Computed example of a mutant assay.
Amino acid sequence: MNNNQYQLDKVVILSRHGIRTPLENTIAFLEKSSPFKWPSWDHAYGYLTTRGGVLETFFGHYLSQWLEQQNIKLTPENPDIYVYANSLQRTVATAQFLVAGAYAGYDIPIVHKYTIEKMDPIFDPSVKNDSSEIKQKVLKEIEEADQKEAIFKNLAPAYKMVSDILDYPHSQLYAELKCDFADIPYELHFVKNEEPELRGPLAIGICVIDAFLLQYYSAFPKEQIAWGRITSQEQWQQLMQIRNHYIDLVFHSRTIARHNSKLLINKIDDLLHNKNYKVNLLVGHDSTIAALLGALDFAPYQLPNQFENTPIGGMVILQRYRHVTSGKYFFKAEYVYQSFEQLYTGEAIDINNPPQHYQLKLLNATPNSDGFYSWHDFEKRIKDFQP
Protein backbone atom coordinates (compact mmCIF):
# COMPACT_ATOMS: atom_id res chain seq x y z
CA MET A 1 0.00 0.00 0.00
CA ASN A 2 1.20 3.50 -0.81
CA ASN A 3 0.50 4.76 2.68
CA ASN A 4 2.82 7.75 2.37
CA GLN A 5 0.17 9.44 0.25
CA TYR A 6 -2.41 9.23 3.06
CA GLN A 7 -2.39 11.36 6.21
CA LEU A 8 -4.46 10.16 9.17
CA ASP A 9 -6.88 12.98 9.89
CA LYS A 10 -9.20 11.64 12.61
CA VAL A 11 -9.89 8.42 14.52
CA VAL A 12 -12.86 7.13 16.47
CA ILE A 13 -11.83 4.18 18.63
CA LEU A 14 -14.47 1.85 20.07
CA SER A 15 -12.89 -0.35 22.74
CA ARG A 16 -14.27 -3.27 24.67
CA HIS A 17 -13.44 -3.12 28.39
CA GLY A 18 -10.49 -5.10 29.68
CA ILE A 19 -10.31 -8.27 31.77
CA ARG A 20 -13.05 -8.35 34.39
CA THR A 21 -14.47 -10.77 36.92
CA PRO A 22 -17.59 -12.83 36.08
CA LEU A 23 -20.87 -10.92 36.09
CA GLU A 24 -22.83 -11.12 39.31
CA ASN A 25 -26.07 -12.23 37.61
CA THR A 26 -24.30 -15.36 36.31
CA ILE A 27 -22.77 -16.61 39.57
CA ALA A 28 -25.75 -18.52 40.98
CA PHE A 29 -26.42 -19.88 37.52
CA LEU A 30 -22.84 -21.11 37.11
CA GLU A 31 -22.94 -22.82 40.49
CA LYS A 32 -26.06 -24.74 39.43
CA SER A 33 -24.44 -25.93 36.20
CA SER A 34 -21.70 -28.02 37.81
CA PRO A 35 -21.10 -29.99 41.02
CA PHE A 36 -17.55 -28.57 41.15
CA LYS A 37 -16.61 -25.53 43.20
CA TRP A 38 -15.81 -22.46 41.10
CA PRO A 39 -12.60 -20.51 41.88
CA SER A 40 -13.00 -17.32 43.90
CA TRP A 41 -12.05 -13.81 42.72
CA ASP A 42 -10.41 -10.97 44.64
CA HIS A 43 -12.44 -8.19 42.95
CA ALA A 44 -16.14 -7.38 42.96
CA TYR A 45 -18.16 -9.20 40.30
CA GLY A 46 -18.25 -7.45 36.93
CA TYR A 47 -15.30 -5.18 37.81
CA LEU A 48 -12.11 -4.61 35.86
CA THR A 49 -9.32 -6.51 37.61
CA THR A 50 -5.85 -5.24 38.52
CA ARG A 51 -4.39 -7.42 35.77
CA GLY A 52 -6.98 -6.03 33.38
CA GLY A 53 -5.88 -2.52 34.30
CA VAL A 54 -2.21 -3.35 33.70
CA LEU A 55 -2.94 -4.76 30.24
CA GLU A 56 -5.02 -1.70 29.35
CA THR A 57 -2.10 0.51 30.42
CA PHE A 58 0.14 -1.41 28.02
CA PHE A 59 -2.47 -1.01 25.29
CA GLY A 60 -2.73 2.72 25.91
CA HIS A 61 1.06 3.07 25.65
CA TYR A 62 1.03 1.25 22.33
CA LEU A 63 -1.89 3.36 21.09
CA SER A 64 -0.05 6.63 21.71
CA GLN A 65 3.02 5.26 19.90
CA TRP A 66 0.91 4.11 16.96
CA LEU A 67 -0.81 7.51 16.72
CA GLU A 68 2.55 9.26 16.82
CA GLN A 69 3.70 7.00 13.99
CA GLN A 70 0.69 8.33 12.07
CA ASN A 71 1.82 11.91 12.84
CA ILE A 72 -0.80 12.47 15.55
CA LYS A 73 1.18 13.61 18.59
CA LEU A 74 -0.64 14.89 21.65
CA THR A 75 1.02 17.29 24.06
CA PRO A 76 0.18 18.19 27.69
CA GLU A 77 -0.75 21.69 26.49
CA ASN A 78 -3.03 20.30 23.76
CA PRO A 79 -4.35 16.86 24.70
CA ASP A 80 -6.35 16.51 21.50
CA ILE A 81 -8.45 13.56 22.69
CA TYR A 82 -12.04 13.01 23.78
CA VAL A 83 -12.78 10.01 26.02
CA TYR A 84 -16.30 8.75 26.68
CA ALA A 85 -17.19 5.55 28.56
CA ASN A 86 -20.26 3.65 29.58
CA SER A 87 -20.99 4.38 33.23
CA LEU A 88 -19.98 0.97 34.58
CA GLN A 89 -16.89 0.42 36.69
CA ARG A 90 -15.20 -1.84 34.12
CA THR A 91 -15.67 0.59 31.23
CA VAL A 92 -14.75 3.78 33.13
CA ALA A 93 -11.73 2.04 34.69
CA THR A 94 -10.65 0.73 31.27
CA ALA A 95 -10.77 4.27 29.90
CA GLN A 96 -8.74 5.52 32.87
CA PHE A 97 -6.03 2.88 32.42
CA LEU A 98 -5.88 3.38 28.64
CA VAL A 99 -5.40 7.12 29.11
CA ALA A 100 -2.83 6.60 31.89
CA GLY A 101 -0.83 4.29 29.66
CA ALA A 102 -1.07 6.61 26.68
CA TYR A 103 -0.76 10.06 28.25
CA ALA A 104 0.15 9.80 31.93
CA GLY A 105 0.17 13.22 33.58
CA TYR A 106 -1.95 14.87 30.90
CA ASP A 107 -5.14 16.59 32.03
CA ILE A 108 -7.60 14.38 30.11
CA PRO A 109 -11.12 13.99 31.54
CA ILE A 110 -12.91 10.63 31.34
CA VAL A 111 -16.47 11.54 30.43
CA HIS A 112 -19.37 9.37 31.59
CA LYS A 113 -22.92 10.56 32.07
CA TYR A 114 -24.23 8.62 35.04
CA THR A 115 -23.29 7.30 38.44
CA ILE A 116 -21.12 4.18 38.37
CA GLU A 117 -23.06 0.98 37.54
CA LYS A 118 -25.89 2.80 35.71
CA MET A 119 -26.01 1.82 32.05
CA ASP A 120 -25.69 4.64 29.51
CA PRO A 121 -28.35 4.30 26.74
CA ILE A 122 -25.63 4.74 24.09
CA PHE A 123 -24.06 1.43 25.19
CA ASP A 124 -27.18 -0.33 26.45
CA PRO A 125 -27.94 -3.57 24.55
CA SER A 126 -31.43 -3.80 26.02
CA VAL A 127 -34.42 -4.22 23.73
CA LYS A 128 -35.79 -0.84 22.65
CA ASN A 129 -38.91 -2.12 20.89
CA ASP A 130 -40.38 -5.52 21.76
CA SER A 131 -43.31 -5.41 19.33
CA SER A 132 -44.31 -8.76 17.87
CA GLU A 133 -43.27 -7.48 14.43
CA ILE A 134 -39.70 -6.76 15.57
CA LYS A 135 -39.48 -10.02 17.52
CA GLN A 136 -40.59 -11.99 14.46
CA LYS A 137 -37.94 -10.25 12.36
CA VAL A 138 -35.27 -11.23 14.89
CA LEU A 139 -36.49 -14.84 15.03
CA LYS A 140 -36.49 -15.02 11.24
CA GLU A 141 -32.90 -13.76 11.08
CA ILE A 142 -31.81 -16.35 13.65
CA GLU A 143 -33.56 -19.12 11.72
CA GLU A 144 -32.03 -17.96 8.43
CA ALA A 145 -28.57 -17.83 9.98
CA ASP A 146 -29.02 -21.34 11.35
CA GLN A 147 -30.17 -22.71 7.99
CA LYS A 148 -27.26 -21.02 6.25
CA GLU A 149 -24.58 -22.13 8.71
CA ALA A 150 -26.25 -25.15 10.40
CA ILE A 151 -25.13 -23.45 13.61
CA PHE A 152 -26.96 -25.51 16.20
CA LYS A 153 -26.05 -28.81 14.53
CA ASN A 154 -22.38 -27.82 14.22
CA LEU A 155 -22.26 -26.85 17.89
CA ALA A 156 -23.12 -30.38 19.10
CA PRO A 157 -19.44 -31.32 19.76
CA ALA A 158 -18.86 -28.04 21.64
CA TYR A 159 -21.99 -28.63 23.75
CA LYS A 160 -20.75 -32.14 24.57
CA MET A 161 -17.37 -30.70 25.61
CA VAL A 162 -19.03 -28.12 27.90
CA SER A 163 -21.20 -30.82 29.46
CA ASP A 164 -18.16 -33.04 30.10
CA ILE A 165 -16.05 -30.23 31.58
CA LEU A 166 -18.90 -29.18 33.90
CA ASP A 167 -19.90 -32.77 34.74
CA TYR A 168 -23.34 -31.38 33.94
CA PRO A 169 -25.20 -34.72 34.45
CA HIS A 170 -24.36 -34.47 38.17
CA SER A 171 -25.37 -30.81 38.52
CA GLN A 172 -28.38 -29.16 40.12
CA LEU A 173 -29.32 -27.78 36.69
CA TYR A 174 -29.56 -31.28 35.22
CA ALA A 175 -31.70 -32.38 38.17
CA GLU A 176 -34.09 -29.53 37.36
CA LEU A 177 -34.15 -29.86 33.56
CA LYS A 178 -33.71 -33.64 33.22
CA CYS A 179 -32.23 -33.49 29.72
CA ASP A 180 -28.84 -33.52 28.03
CA PHE A 181 -27.04 -30.18 27.70
CA ALA A 182 -27.60 -29.95 23.92
CA ASP A 183 -31.32 -30.73 24.36
CA ILE A 184 -32.10 -27.81 26.69
CA PRO A 185 -34.88 -25.94 24.85
CA TYR A 186 -34.11 -22.73 22.97
CA GLU A 187 -36.20 -19.64 23.62
CA LEU A 188 -35.74 -16.04 22.52
CA HIS A 189 -36.18 -13.72 25.52
CA PHE A 190 -37.13 -10.40 23.93
CA VAL A 191 -38.61 -7.95 26.44
CA LYS A 192 -38.42 -4.16 26.35
CA ASN A 193 -35.69 -2.66 28.59
CA GLU A 194 -34.11 -6.08 29.14
CA GLU A 195 -31.12 -7.56 27.34
CA PRO A 196 -32.13 -9.99 24.58
CA GLU A 197 -31.20 -13.60 25.30
CA LEU A 198 -31.29 -16.78 23.26
CA ARG A 199 -31.96 -19.01 26.22
CA GLY A 200 -30.93 -22.64 26.19
CA PRO A 201 -27.53 -24.31 25.72
CA LEU A 202 -26.16 -21.32 23.79
CA ALA A 203 -26.86 -18.87 26.66
CA ILE A 204 -25.67 -21.30 29.32
CA GLY A 205 -22.63 -22.08 27.21
CA ILE A 206 -21.55 -18.45 26.82
CA CYS A 207 -21.81 -17.86 30.59
CA VAL A 208 -19.68 -20.92 31.30
CA ILE A 209 -17.10 -20.22 28.58
CA ASP A 210 -16.79 -16.57 29.65
CA ALA A 211 -15.98 -17.77 33.17
CA PHE A 212 -13.31 -20.15 31.82
CA LEU A 213 -11.89 -17.44 29.55
CA LEU A 214 -11.61 -14.94 32.38
CA GLN A 215 -9.74 -17.54 34.44
CA TYR A 216 -7.37 -18.11 31.50
CA TYR A 217 -6.81 -14.42 30.76
CA SER A 218 -6.24 -13.84 34.48
CA ALA A 219 -3.50 -16.51 34.47
CA PHE A 220 -5.14 -18.67 37.14
CA PRO A 221 -3.18 -21.84 38.00
CA LYS A 222 -3.80 -24.37 35.23
CA GLU A 223 -5.57 -26.77 37.57
CA GLN A 224 -8.11 -24.02 38.37
CA ILE A 225 -8.86 -23.04 34.74
CA ALA A 226 -11.96 -25.15 34.01
CA TRP A 227 -10.70 -27.46 36.82
CA GLY A 228 -7.75 -28.42 34.60
CA ARG A 229 -10.08 -29.91 31.98
CA ILE A 230 -9.10 -27.65 29.06
CA THR A 231 -5.68 -28.81 27.97
CA SER A 232 -5.32 -27.73 24.32
CA GLN A 233 -5.80 -24.79 21.97
CA GLU A 234 -8.08 -27.01 19.88
CA GLN A 235 -10.48 -27.29 22.83
CA TRP A 236 -10.51 -23.52 23.27
CA GLN A 237 -11.17 -23.06 19.56
CA GLN A 238 -14.12 -25.44 19.63
CA LEU A 239 -15.59 -23.98 22.82
CA MET A 240 -15.31 -20.47 21.44
CA GLN A 241 -17.72 -21.36 18.65
CA ILE A 242 -20.49 -21.16 21.26
CA ARG A 243 -19.44 -17.70 22.39
CA ASN A 244 -19.01 -16.32 18.88
CA HIS A 245 -22.31 -17.72 17.60
CA TYR A 246 -24.21 -16.34 20.59
CA ILE A 247 -22.81 -12.83 20.03
CA ASP A 248 -23.47 -13.09 16.28
CA LEU A 249 -27.07 -14.26 16.64
CA VAL A 250 -28.11 -12.03 19.53
CA PHE A 251 -26.22 -8.76 18.92
CA HIS A 252 -24.82 -8.83 15.38
CA SER A 253 -28.03 -9.83 13.58
CA ARG A 254 -29.26 -6.94 11.45
CA THR A 255 -32.49 -5.95 13.22
CA ILE A 256 -31.05 -5.95 16.75
CA ALA A 257 -27.79 -4.38 15.56
CA ARG A 258 -29.53 -1.46 13.85
CA HIS A 259 -31.84 -0.83 16.81
CA ASN A 260 -29.07 -1.06 19.41
CA SER A 261 -26.51 1.02 17.50
CA LYS A 262 -28.57 4.05 16.56
CA LEU A 263 -27.53 6.27 19.49
CA LEU A 264 -23.91 5.10 19.25
CA ILE A 265 -23.74 5.80 15.51
CA ASN A 266 -25.22 9.26 16.01
CA LYS A 267 -22.55 9.86 18.66
CA ILE A 268 -19.83 8.73 16.25
CA ASP A 269 -21.25 11.03 13.57
CA ASP A 270 -21.08 13.97 16.00
CA LEU A 271 -17.46 13.14 16.84
CA LEU A 272 -16.50 12.91 13.18
CA HIS A 273 -17.86 16.41 12.63
CA ASN A 274 -16.35 17.86 15.80
CA LYS A 275 -13.19 19.76 14.84
CA ASN A 276 -11.93 19.95 18.43
CA TYR A 277 -10.59 16.40 18.68
CA LYS A 278 -8.54 14.27 16.31
CA VAL A 279 -8.65 11.28 18.64
CA ASN A 280 -11.92 10.00 20.08
CA LEU A 281 -12.07 7.00 22.43
CA LEU A 282 -15.33 5.28 23.36
CA VAL A 283 -15.34 2.36 25.82
CA GLY A 284 -18.17 -0.16 25.82
CA HIS A 285 -18.73 -3.89 25.48
CA ASP A 286 -18.55 -6.85 23.10
CA SER A 287 -22.26 -6.32 22.39
CA THR A 288 -21.49 -2.69 21.44
CA ILE A 289 -18.83 -3.69 18.92
CA ALA A 290 -20.83 -6.59 17.46
CA ALA A 291 -23.90 -4.39 16.97
CA LEU A 292 -21.92 -1.54 15.40
CA LEU A 293 -20.22 -3.84 12.88
CA GLY A 294 -23.55 -5.46 12.05
CA ALA A 295 -25.40 -2.17 11.68
CA LEU A 296 -22.76 -0.65 9.36
CA ASP A 297 -22.53 -3.75 7.14
CA PHE A 298 -18.99 -4.84 7.79
CA ALA A 299 -18.05 -8.18 6.24
CA PRO A 300 -17.75 -11.34 8.37
CA TYR A 301 -14.23 -11.88 9.68
CA GLN A 302 -11.97 -14.26 11.57
CA LEU A 303 -9.30 -12.58 13.69
CA PRO A 304 -5.85 -14.19 13.40
CA ASN A 305 -4.32 -15.56 16.62
CA GLN A 306 -7.59 -15.08 18.54
CA PHE A 307 -10.56 -17.38 19.10
CA GLU A 308 -12.95 -14.60 20.18
CA ASN A 309 -14.61 -12.51 17.46
CA THR A 310 -14.88 -9.61 19.94
CA PRO A 311 -11.80 -10.14 22.14
CA ILE A 312 -11.64 -8.62 25.58
CA GLY A 313 -9.81 -5.28 25.54
CA GLY A 314 -9.87 -5.23 21.73
CA MET A 315 -10.77 -2.08 19.82
CA VAL A 316 -12.22 -1.18 16.45
CA ILE A 317 -10.42 1.88 15.10
CA LEU A 318 -12.39 3.87 12.52
CA GLN A 319 -9.89 5.98 10.58
CA ARG A 320 -10.33 8.95 8.26
CA TYR A 321 -7.40 9.70 5.94
CA ARG A 322 -6.72 12.66 3.71
CA HIS A 323 -5.04 11.88 0.40
CA VAL A 324 -2.13 14.29 0.21
CA THR A 325 -2.22 14.87 -3.55
CA SER A 326 -5.95 14.99 -4.28
CA GLY A 327 -7.21 16.28 -0.91
CA LYS A 328 -9.92 13.59 -0.95
CA TYR A 329 -10.88 11.68 2.19
CA PHE A 330 -10.68 7.92 2.58
CA PHE A 331 -11.76 5.35 5.16
CA LYS A 332 -10.12 2.39 6.81
CA ALA A 333 -11.18 0.30 9.83
CA GLU A 334 -8.96 -2.02 11.83
CA TYR A 335 -9.59 -4.42 14.68
CA VAL A 336 -6.62 -4.00 17.04
CA TYR A 337 -6.44 -6.58 19.81
CA GLN A 338 -4.19 -8.74 21.93
CA SER A 339 -3.78 -12.31 20.77
CA PHE A 340 -5.03 -15.24 22.83
CA GLU A 341 -1.43 -15.83 23.91
CA GLN A 342 -0.65 -12.15 24.65
CA LEU A 343 -3.64 -11.94 27.00
CA TYR A 344 -2.56 -15.11 28.81
CA THR A 345 1.08 -14.16 29.25
CA GLY A 346 0.25 -10.55 30.14
CA GLU A 347 3.36 -9.37 28.35
CA ALA A 348 3.86 -5.67 27.71
CA ILE A 349 2.91 -4.50 24.23
CA ASP A 350 4.44 -1.52 22.48
CA ILE A 351 5.42 -0.46 18.97
CA ASN A 352 8.19 -3.13 18.94
CA ASN A 353 5.94 -5.88 20.32
CA PRO A 354 2.60 -4.79 18.91
CA PRO A 355 -0.89 -6.20 19.34
CA GLN A 356 -2.63 -7.77 16.37
CA HIS A 357 -3.96 -5.56 13.54
CA TYR A 358 -6.69 -6.82 11.23
CA GLN A 359 -8.25 -4.67 8.52
CA LEU A 360 -12.02 -4.93 8.44
CA LYS A 361 -13.85 -4.94 5.12
CA LEU A 362 -17.10 -3.24 4.14
CA LEU A 363 -19.81 -5.17 2.35
CA ASN A 364 -21.04 -3.67 -0.95
CA ALA A 365 -18.04 -1.37 -1.26
CA THR A 366 -14.73 -1.72 -3.11
CA PRO A 367 -11.40 -0.44 -1.75
CA ASN A 368 -8.93 1.32 -4.00
CA SER A 369 -5.61 -0.23 -5.01
CA ASP A 370 -4.08 1.03 -1.75
CA GLY A 371 -6.72 -0.72 0.36
CA PHE A 372 -8.68 2.40 1.35
CA TYR A 373 -12.42 2.95 0.89
CA SER A 374 -13.96 6.16 -0.32
CA TRP A 375 -14.98 8.20 2.72
CA HIS A 376 -18.38 8.61 1.08
CA ASP A 377 -18.92 4.82 1.20
CA PHE A 378 -18.60 4.89 4.96
CA GLU A 379 -20.27 8.24 5.62
CA LYS A 380 -23.48 7.31 3.83
CA ARG A 381 -23.86 4.33 6.18
CA ILE A 382 -23.54 6.66 9.16
CA LYS A 383 -26.08 9.09 7.66
CA ASP A 384 -28.69 6.31 7.40
CA PHE A 385 -29.06 6.52 11.19
CA GLN A 386 -29.60 10.25 11.53
CA PRO A 387 -32.87 11.27 13.21
Rank of each mutant, 00 (worst) to 15 (best):
L14N: 02
L14G: 00
A28T: 00
K32S: 05
P39F: 14
D42W: 12
A44M: 04
A44W: 09
Y45E: 06
F58R: 11
L63K: 07
L67Q: 15
P76L: 15
P76Q: 14
D80W: 13
Y84C: 08
R90Q: 13
V99H: 05
V99I: 14
G101D: 07
A104T: 09
G105Y: 15
Y114D: 06
Y114A: 05
F123P: 12
E143D: 14
F152L: 13
S163H: 01
D164M: 04
P169V: 04
L173P: 01
A175W: 02
D183I: 02
I184W: 04
E187V: 06
V191H: 10
N193V: 09
L198M: 04
L202C: 07
I204W: 08
G205T: 02
I206Q: 03
I209R: 05
I209N: 01
Y216G: 02
E223G: 00
A226W: 09
M240L: 11
R243T: 08
V250T: 03
H259D: 11
H259Q: 10
N260V: 05
L263E: 12
I268M: 12
I268P: 07
L272P: 08
N274C: 04
S287G: 03
A291D: 04
A295R: 01
P300N: 05
L303P: 03
E308C: 04
T310L: 01
V316P: 00
L318R: 08
Q319V: 02
Y321K: 07
H323L: 10
T325Y: 10
G327R: 11
Y337M: 03
Q338Y: 11
I351E: 14
Y358I: 00
D370Y: 12
S374E: 10
K383V: 14
